[in-house]
Simulated assay, not measured.
Amino acid sequence: MDLQMLALDLDFLSVLRNLAQHPLVQKYRNALRALSGTPHDFAEAYGALCAEVYQSGDQGQVLLRSLHCDTNALTDTIDHPSANVILAVSHDVRTLNDLLSVSGSELLDTAKSIFGQALPSISVLPTFASGSALPFTDGDGLRAYYQDKGFGFFADATFYAVDKEKIVPVVHPDPVRLTDLKGYAHQKAQILTNTRAFLAGRAANNILLYGDKGTGKSSTVKAVVNEYAKEGLKIIELSVTQISMFPVICTYAAHSPYKIIVFLDDLTFEREDENFATLKAFIEGGLTGKPDNLILYATSNRRHLIRERFSDREGDDVHRRDTLETVTSLSDRFGLEITFSVPERDEYLMIVDQLAEDCGIEMEAEQLHLLAERFALRRNGRSPRTARQFIQMQLAQEMA
């Protein structure tokens, strides 16, 4: 392979030109260009390339991740790309695969043939293996990959959060699965049915999960996302103070092929404020249209989401009616409301029994139930969270 010509081919990247700014591609290009310079130019560029390869891992996987998250003329016209776009992408893909096939040894051999004795013995210089090839070889192949795997901003992860007004992937997302959550079969079935409709592009409702603390509202939402992550379901978690990020999220979502849940956990307002009004407008009737691939799931310990005071019920009939309408105006905008109440004794003990079986705890049921009830009395009462904490305590005691 003519490595100096490969450097020229890299300059001709067009549709996939964003990859030209990737640090790995830049280091490759600098090393290739340095073959036309001095031995010192090559030594500096080659050393930087080695450092980048050692740090980043397999070059092919690095560039594939970057391509997966890219947006370009092909992704913008993914359903009906022009022949020229497909042709240009084919050139770019071939160039990138050629680049990935270059090993450190090939670069050093070429440099030795150019610079001769000006280079030290190749045997004492660092080297690296070629990278794995991309799983496609032309424009049609990359288009098929995008149609199957998706593309763009949300391609890199499943769970996202907002940090300093930026949407960022969650480094260590909660791996909880539905099989980990015991009880509440009816509630889980409602959420699953709505989520499957959303993924299928059918009509689906925003969901409000409300009820007592420790009943698994948040964990259920996260478990559902983990269940359908392979089908392209994403989640962005926001706090009440980050509700102003909705327009930004809508902009990103509108250009994404993925289905996205905006998740507001523990949603409660002290009063009707700017965030309260923004959320109402976002759900229904705002000027910024909500993309069809975006839905809202929220959890709260309060049915109406806003803290009520006795003073709200004072005054004449008109005042009381207006106040109550304000209080209910937000919760009424959720098409599906699902209640998570604390379990009765039998359901609580059923959850304990299932968790104990999953964890391999062998104890007579009567003794296990007695200890579980005592634990609940000392804690905050019966709940799935209390049951998990009790089982964790039993496991710790067995290990002691």
Rank of each mutant, 00 (worst) to 15 (best):
L8Y: 03
S14N: 14
V15N: 10
P23M: 15
Q26N: 10
N30H: 13
T38I: 09
Q55N: 08
R65I: 10
S66V: 09
T71L: 10
L74F: 14
S82H: 09
I86M: 14
R94L: 13
N97E: 09
L100C: 06
L100D: 01
G104V: 08
G104Q: 04
S105F: 10
L107Q: 07
K112D: 02
K112G: 12
S113N: 11
A118Y: 10
I122N: 08
D138M: 01
G139E: 02
Y145N: 01
K149E: 15
K164Y: 09
I167N: 03
T179S: 12
D180L: 01
G183I: 10
N205C: 11
K213T: 15
V225N: 01
Y228F: 15
I235F: 02
S244F: 07
M245H: 05
A253Q: 01
A253K: 03
I261T: 04
L264A: 05
D265P: 00
R271A: 10
A281G: 05
G285F: 07
G289W: 03
G289S: 13
N293R: 06
L294S: 07
L296K: 02
Y297N: 01
R320P: 00
R320Q: 14
R321K: 13
E325F: 07
T328R: 06
S331E: 00
D332P: 02
T339R: 00
T339C: 00
E344K: 12
D346N: 14
D353V: 05
Q354C: 04
L355W: 01
A356H: 03
M363L: 05
E366L: 04
L370S: 08
R382E: 05
F390K: 06
A396N: 05
Q397T: 07
M399A: 13
